[in-house]
Design a protein around this nucleic acid. Structure first.
Length: 858
RNA sequence: GCGAGAGUGGCGGAAUUGGCAGACGCGCUAGAUUUAGGAUCUAGUGUCGCAAGGCGUGUGGGUUCGAGUCCCUCCUCUCGCACCA
């Protein structure tokens, strides 16, 4: 009996099936081929859109494919549940962040179910659960004991919008990554993780990550920013102070004609002479009040002030002036530079502006540079001049080494490696995060909370507004764990990137309340075989996770150096967004008249942006699922384009996906009864007639192509191949209907079954239903992934392209054995194009066996 | 400025050890069927041309029998970094 494709009924029927059958709940002790597949866990915020869907569908389709290939697949899911947005959203809505978060988690789980995306839910975790953050605290204490966690006062990034400190990584173009407020500086005492201890290893091990996208590695390399050079010490004239500078060009020391300190440099105050104090003070103040955004504009005029003091160039004893300027950054190197205007463009511009001397110390062979008339710095190679005993040496690494050795002997320099990477600031002054498990005691100083007293619970207070732990006395009033006298808890919470830097290990022991995780199990399943997530985490999350993994290795918790073997970064889905100057962001579906605001008819600003709630340009999967079904939404999302590429959402093509599923459904309905009792038989391609053989070829070719594409995440082309396979079945069916061909039942049965299995990871609902329709009682996931017959990949007849002077002129269909016979091919090809060659001389004939014949004529 | 990636029909995109450009899908055109069509089926659909044929993968050049693919030049776009000493 033929049935219509009632996707709603079908999808409701199977929605809980895979979970109930525990296909995604592997036995961790399994001895078979095992594979840890992991999607970056989500931040549970309201509703997921089709862009999120892409991420989960890549994972779900891959895991279903892997299961059918006999892997024991671990594919867990959890929630990155702490963080500012929860708090801000909670403030807006007047409910507790906890309530809001758990409601969202429930909603996410509902959406996963709707999508047919299945995980090992036994391992679910949420970072805001005390059972999780207890181990965050435990880890913090271990870091503290190993001096990987420390507290220091520093000038930190402060976001006035979020009322908290930010890590360097969270400041983008001088603005808060989250709320876009302009970031200011504050002098605060904060907790840091000593990621710089691992800078070199984090850099070196990037080379081990052969299956990571090159661009992610490049970004990390730039972020770590290693540079080699020297540390040089200068004495302030007439004072005891010394100032150190870092330079990558110690060979230009003789050309240093002034020194520049960052305005915030601690020695500025002490070094400045009395008569310069006023001007310098004004400049420092101005520099501090200026935002990083302004200071980072590279092409603006150089500004600065002379401190009135001088410093001695240790190489030649010359007295050179000390300046401050905002082009020198406190955070890099020592916050001070030796300025060599002849060979550094920035110093050159500064020298010209303030009329400071320019002394070349390297010049191109056979050319004399004149510091007084140079138009720009000379940053290239050449011969050393004006450099005392080093004159005449070729500028380059060898001379640098020689000079640094000499400086070291003289006692004012040494070679040095400097990193741009700075320690990870993890303190946050908000409520919804992991409390830092430390107690401040007047007598004992900083004392860690004893491990048996963990977790330090977040106080369960009514959540009224922006409120940090520092405003909750019930929380911070405590006794010192060491001496028992009244003390104060640390009121900072941890950056949520701490939570996400090791969650992939906790999945293995998510309910263990005795230890952070079972090391032997973690060592047997990790590193993660395949990690998938957005490119936006290229630096932050991935660098922190790598660091924490290395620290854990040194703590003997794990045995591996890197957490993620393979990384795949999927592209975001973008959608048009409209903004009205008056009315803010306007949902695209409300914009009826092109580019005009529906409220006041004013022209709108249009942009293509990543789907986000704030820009009101999200597309909910719900509507599509209601109208066309989950399978269509899944298929279309994966069909739209290559998953690593960013893509603009456009639902005009969605009908094509729906049409295909209807065609698949219809053809199976047509033959299911006829094929039910056909006994499967091994198909021998050689014995097939021509039409059957064509189907046999296509079946095997498509199976081969789809399998190859799945391995490379090329779902768009595997969907195309599945469609082609289906189209071939229609052709075959039409041939049978026309009575020109007798149906080969065992062959057709195999083809239909194979097609269903091949499409099943992408559209699991219809596949499961059709599988039963054609008479099977087991689940698709219990079946093996279809194999292909190697011999079917070669056709008996080959199309040979015939070219004249490289242009296609004819085609030739020849048996395979002829296709490889060069002489015969040439003979046959010549017959085809003889008339064209008349009166022309054939100079050369190129014959590529199995492919083409090209006549070169003149 | 530096680094990475991309540029192919009306649209999303296929094709990479150099060998039929435009698979698959959308859209469009025509026809069939239908009371109807945002349904289904069939055929067509890069472009110019009645045709033969010409032209076509951002630009210009090169290598080659043959280039979307390799090399050089330039242009445009996207992303990352950016006064890092």
């Amino acid at each position: 009996m033929s049935r219509p494709y009632d996707f709603k009924k079908i999808e409701d029927k199977w929605r809980d099936f895979w979970k109930e059958q525990k296909f995604f709940e592997p036995d961790l002790k399994s001895t078979g081929k095992k594979l840890y597949y992991l999607n970056m866990f989500p931040y549970p915020s309201g509703e997921m859109h089709v862009g999120h869907g892409r991420n989960w569908l890549i994972g779900d389709a891959t895991c279903r494919y892997l299961i059918m290939n006999g892997f024991t697949v671990l594919n867990p899911m959890g929630f990155d549940a702490f963080g500012l947005p929860a708090e801000n959203a909670a403030i807006d809505r007047g409910i507790h962040p906890k309530e809001w978060t758990y409601k969202n988690i429930e909603n996410f789980k509902k959406q996963f179910r709707e999508w047919g995306v299945v995980f090992d839910w036994r391992r679910e975790l949420a970072t805001c659960d005390p059972g999780y953050y207890k181990w965050n605290q435990w880890l913090f204490i271990q870091f503290y004991k190993r001096e990987l966690a420390y507290r220091k006062a520093s000038l930190v990034n402060w976001c006035p919008g979020c009322d908290t400190v930010l890590a360097n990584e969270q400041v983008v173009d001088g603005a808060c990554e989250r709320c876009q407020s302009e970031v200011t500086k504050k002098d605060l005492t904060q907790w840091f993780f000593k990621i710089t201890d691992y800078a070199q290893e984090l850099l070196d091990d990037l080379d081990k990550l052969q299956h990571w996208p090159e661009r992610v590695k490049i970004m990390q390399r730039n972020w770590i920013g290693r540079s080699e050079g020297a540390l040089l010490r200068f004495k302030v004239e007439g004072a005891s102070e010394e100032i150190e500078v870092f330079t990558t060009r110690p060979d230009t020391l003789y050309g240093a004609t002034f020194m520049v300190l960052a305005p915030e440099h601690p020695l500025v105050e002490r070094v400045t002479t009395a008569d310069r104090k006023k001007d310098v003070g004004t400049y420092v103040k101005k520099a501090q009040s200026e935002s990083d955004i302004k200071r980072q504009i590279t092409d603006r005029d150089k500004t600065g002030e002379f401190l009135g003091a001088y410093i001695i160039n240790p190489a030649n004893g010359e007295k050179i002036p000390i300046w401050i300027a905002d082009y020198v950054l406190l955070g890099y190197g020592t916050g001070a530079i030796m300025a060599v205007p002849a060979h550094d463009q920035r110093d050159f511009e500064f020298a010209r502006k303030f009329d400071l001397p320019v002394v070349p110390v390297i010049q191109p062979e056979g050319e004399a540079l004149d510091g007084a008339t140079m138009a720009e710095a000379y940053p290239h190679d050449g011969v050393m001049i004006n450099s005392g005993e080093f004159n005449g040496l070729p500028a380059g690494p060898e001379t640098i080494n020689k000079m640094v050795d000499s400086f070291e002997k003289e006692g004012y320099g040494k070679s040095e490696v400097n990193y741009r990477l700075r320690d990870w600031l993890i303190s946050r002054q908000r409520y919804w995060g992991t409390p830092i498990p430390m107690v401040h005691c007047a007598k004992c100083g900083i004392v860690p909370v004893p491990e048996e007293d963990l977790p330090v619970l977040l106080p369960d207070v009514e959540f009224l507004g922006k409120k940090g732990l520092a405003e909750i006395p019930d929380f911070y009033e405590t006794d010192c764990p060491k001496c028992g006298s009244p003390a104060r808890r640390d009121t900072d919470t941890m950056d949520t990137f701490v939570d996400s830097s090791w969650y992939f290990m906790r999945y293995l022991s998510q309910d263990d309340d005795q230890k952070i995780f079972d090391s032997s199990q973690v060592n047997s399943w990790l590193p993660v075989d395949q990690y998938v997530g957005g490119i936006e985490h290229a630096i932050l999350h991935l660098l922190y996770a790598r660091f924490v993994t290395k620290a854990m290795r040194d703590m003997k918790l794990v045995k591996f150096d890197e957490p993620f073997i393979r990384l795949f970064t999927q592209g975001m889905i973008t959608h048009v967004a409209f903004r009205c100057k008056e009315h803010g962001w306007i949902p695209p579906q409300d914009v009826k008249e092109k580019n005009l605001c529906p409220h006041d008819g004013q022209p709108l600003i249009q942009e293509l942006a990543k789907m986000s709630k704030s820009k009101k340009n999200t597309i909910a999967p719900t509507k599509i699922i209601e109208e066309y079904g989950t399978d269509t939404e899944r298929l279309y999302t994966l069909f739209m384009g290559p998953p690593e590429r960013e893509i603009e959402w456009n639902d005009e093509g969605i009908r094509g996906g729906f049409r295909f599923l209807n065609r698949l459904w219809t053809i199976v309905q047509k033959y299911k009864d006829r094929l039910k009792n056909v006994t499967p038989a091994k198909i021998d391609g050689e014995k097939l007639n021509k039409r059957d053989k064509q189907l046999w070829h296509v079946m095997n070719e498509k199976t081969y192509a789809i399998t190859k594409d799945f391995k490379k995440f090329h779902f768009n082309t595997s969907v195309a191949a599945v469609m082609e396979f289906n189209n071939e079945l229609y052709d075959y069916s039409a041939a049978c209907d026309a009575e020109s061909h007798e149906l080969n039942a065992p062959l057709l049965k195999q083809a239909i079954e194979q097609l269903i299995l091949l499409v099943s990871p992408i559209t699991p609902f219809i596949a499961e239903e059709l599988w039963r329709e054609i008479g099977h009682e087991n689940a698709v996931l219990e079946e093996s992934w279809p194999g292909y017959d190697e011999s079917a990949l070669e056709r008996d007849e080959k199309t040979i392209v015939i070219q004249v002077n490289g242009k296609l002129r004819a085609q030739l269909l020849v048996p395979a054995n002829i296709a490889t016979d060069k002489a015969e091919l040439e003979k046959r090809a010549l017959q085809q194009v003889e008339s064209r060659l008349e009166g022309k001389t054939v100079r050369k004939v190129i014959v590529v066996p199995g492919k083409l014949v090209n006549f070169v004529v003149g």
